[in-house]
């Protein structure tokens, strides 16, 4: 088959053929899979808004700045 092609095209195909062993073996399917899971991983790493609603962790900091139980506040 190669013999039927002209010299330029042969050169290009030779490159591809020789480079072929080092070509990215990731298929399009695999690529999209990687993107999806990678994105999910990033979302977990970043501050998830879900966390705030599941616990009072934020409030733990706020709880520190909290009224003293025995103090009496002023009524208006």
């Amino acid at each position: 088959m190669l013999k039927m092609l002209n010299k330029d095209r042969v050169t290009a195909l030779l490159v591809i053929d020789k480079f072929g062993g080092q070509m990215n073996k990731t298929s399009r399917r695999k690529f999209f899979k990687k993107i999806t899971f990678g994105g999910l991983g990033l979302a977990l790493l970043s501050k998830s808004p879900l966390k705030a609603f599941t616990s009072d962790k934020k409030n733990k900091r706020l709880k520190k700045v909290f009224i003293h139980p025995n103090s009496v506040k002023r009524t208006k």
């Binding site: 705030a52 009072d56 909290f66 103090s71 506040k73």
Partner: peptide, 29 residues
């Protein structure tokens, strides 16, 4: 990884509001 330097935390509502504290209203002692 980079957090927004303006971000001072989120405005999160109390799930268990401490007694006597009403967000937006001040108490005097």
């Amino acid at each position: 990884g980079c957090s927004d330097y303006h971000d001072q935390g989120e405005i999160v509502p109390y799930t268990n509001r401490p007694e006597g504290i009403l967000p937006g209203s001040s108490n005097y002692y």
